[in-house]
Amino acid sequence: MAVGHEPRIVGFLCNWCSYAGADVAGTSRITYPPNIRIIRVPCSGRVDPLLIVKSFQMGADGVLVAGCHPGDCHYSEGNYHARRRLAVLRPFLEYLGIERERLRVEWVSASEGRRFSQVVSSFTEQLRKLEPRKGAEVEVSS
């Protein structure tokens, strides 16, 4: 691990559960590492694998996709679809040389502020143990 390297995480949080959960963490003054850059999406089902692959192309160390628990999706089934796509994307990225730990999927409800903070903390720690990402993917087009 490079000295002083801070992992950069792109977090796609669904509006109805996980984004609200992150909000609860904030309003409850529960701290979590600033390594995550949050992008609010309507539903975990909106997280086109292209968004994840683009994040990695641009040098993200990790990508978090967080949505409502199965059964709780605001649109009934978005997270079931997300689950299938991500279950295939993860081994595929690993096959291309991106460690499977770098893509994390979590179900976080609107009340689970503490859990959200734990997820971000443990994810950040996990990424610290890996090398910073470099190589072709990091070279960014402006």
Binding site: P49, L50, V53, K54, Q57, V88, L89, F92, L93, L96, A136, E137, V138, E139, V140, S141
Partner: peptide
């Protein structure tokens, strides 16, 4: 948005090939 930049550079070809294949998953 510009997902794949027009220049021939490794990172652009990386995202192209990754997503070309993934769009055919299943």
């Amino acid at each position: 948005p510009l997902w794949v930049g027009i220049r021939i550079a490794p990172s652009e070809s990386w995202i192209w090939n990754t997503m070309r294949a993934f769009h055919l998953a299943g």
